[in-house]
């Protein structure tokens, strides 16, 4: 993309932003406040096409309003109006002009499409993240750091991110509007997506492809951090503080071992086999659980373990309401809340 086109696109974005201004703060999942170059490029193209189309609409609607006002039947009109079969000039005109507009838009489109599909140079040291869509949660793996987490994707600001999108079961679509458009996770294939955040912040997103009963609840967050904060997070995840500190938590760990470890893994513990459910390393530091459907507190953790099927129908997580007593649930919650990053 040349500089000129980009600046033009930015100008368009500016105008469009003016339309949607004020709304942005209240709409955290909006496409109108891009946090990175990908979303900005996409918004630029959206704006360009919108302005062309608004031009078309003004012409059509204007002509239509004029015709309605000017040629409506009036009292006392007699006879039939002159019959016009057509006009070569006009017909060529309104075939030709749209062709030009469409051709223009096609050129812009193809350029941006290829630009977005171009991988970043390896000299830019992109951060690799493998995103796995599950029914109904997002798993984020950092192969360069050996970290696995869920629901919230931590990324450093101003660094290219290379996402490898995979699915564990059915189709999902990865969408964090502030960072860029969506890309599907397709069973049996890996799709690549390159994103970058140029400002820090927390950006919500969610699955955009219908993926079964609880599709609505498959939400996630991207947290864009300064490089140092990101490094701290990585270090904390690599060396988690997973040992239970209270008696209750120790008891919870026992219960976890027999009931939960089959599906869930926790870094820094013997629980490394479970891959069906989210990895719970550093859970105690997370803001939300279950993709944001619940808050990260004792009450909500107990609610989830006790009643997962009610909160997220058909999830693979069973209800433990009949398997665990209230005091056992308390113990598990205490253990989970104690799982901190290092």
């Amino acid at each position: 993309m040349t500089r000129r086109i980009r600046s033009k696109a930015l100008a368009c974005v500016g105008m469009l932003a003016a339309v949607a201004l004020g709304a942005c703060a209240r709409h955290p999942q909006s496409v109108f406040r891009p946090a990175g170059p990908v979303a900005r490029m996409e918004l630029g193209l959206m704006a360009t096409s919108l302005w062309i189309m608004i031009g078309v609409f003004v012409v059509v609607a204007g002509a239509l309003l004029y015709v309605i006002a000017r040629f409506r039947e009036r009292k006392g009109q007699e006879g039939i109006p002159p019959q016009v079969e057509g006009s070569h000039i006009l017909e060529v005109l309104w075939t030709g002009i749209p062709i030009i507009l469409v051709a223009l838009l096609t050129v812009l489109t193809v350029r941006t499409t290829f630009a977005l599909a171009k991988p970043p140079a390896s000299s830019q040291h992109p951060l690799q993240i493998t995103v796995v869509g599950h029914q109904w949660w997002w798993e984020f793996k950092y192969p360069q750091y050996g970290i696995v987490t869920a629901d919230t994707m931590h990324i450093p600001v101003n660094r290219k991110i290379e996402l490898s999108l995979q699915s564990a079961d059915v189709l999902h679509s990865f969408w964090i509007p502030a960072l860029g458009g969506k890309e599907d996770t397709v069973p049996g294939q890996t799709n690549l997506l390159w994103l970058e955040a140029t400002r820090t912040g927390t950006f919500p997103g969610q699955c955009a492809e219908f993926c079964g009963t609880s599709h609505s609840l498959m939400r996630m967050y991207a947290v864009s951090q300064s490089p140092t904060a990101f490094s701290t997070w990585v270090h904390g995840m690599q060396h988690p503080n997973s040992a239970p500190k209270t008696k209750l938590a120790k008891q919870g760990m026992q219960i976890f071992a027999t009931n939960c470890a089959l599906c869930h893994s926790i870094g820094g513990t013997p629980f490394t086999k479970g891959t069906l459910g989210p990895n719970l390393t550093g859970l105690g530091n997370r803001r939300v659980i279950v993709g944001g459907a619940l808050q990260n507190n004792t009450q909500d953790i107990i609610y989830w373990v006790h009643d997962a099927q009610h909160i997220m129908p058909d999830t693979i997580m069973p209800n433990f309401s009949t398997l665990l007593t209230p005091s056992q649930l308390q113990a598990v919650a205490a253990y989970l809340e104690g799982l901190k990053r290092g």
């Binding site: 496409v31 979303a39 490029m41 996409e42 918004l43 193209l45 959206m46 096409s49 919108l50 189309m53 078309v56 609409f57 059509v60 609607a61 239509l64 309605i68 469409v102 838009l105 489109t109 941006t112 499409t113 977005l116 679509s173 969408w175 509007p177 860029g180 458009g181 969506k182 890309e183 955009a208 492809e209 219908f210």
Partner: peptide
């Protein structure tokens, strides 16, 4: 006549959806 107005809006959003980079945001 109502058709003309509304269908033009539908046609316009149709062209906008045909732009892949924009569609990455619109789709679904």
């Amino acid at each position: 006549v109502g058709f003309l107005f509304t269908f033009v809006i539908g046609g316009i959003s149709g062209v906008m959806l045909a732009v892949p980079p924009a569609d990455y945001q619109y789709n679904d």
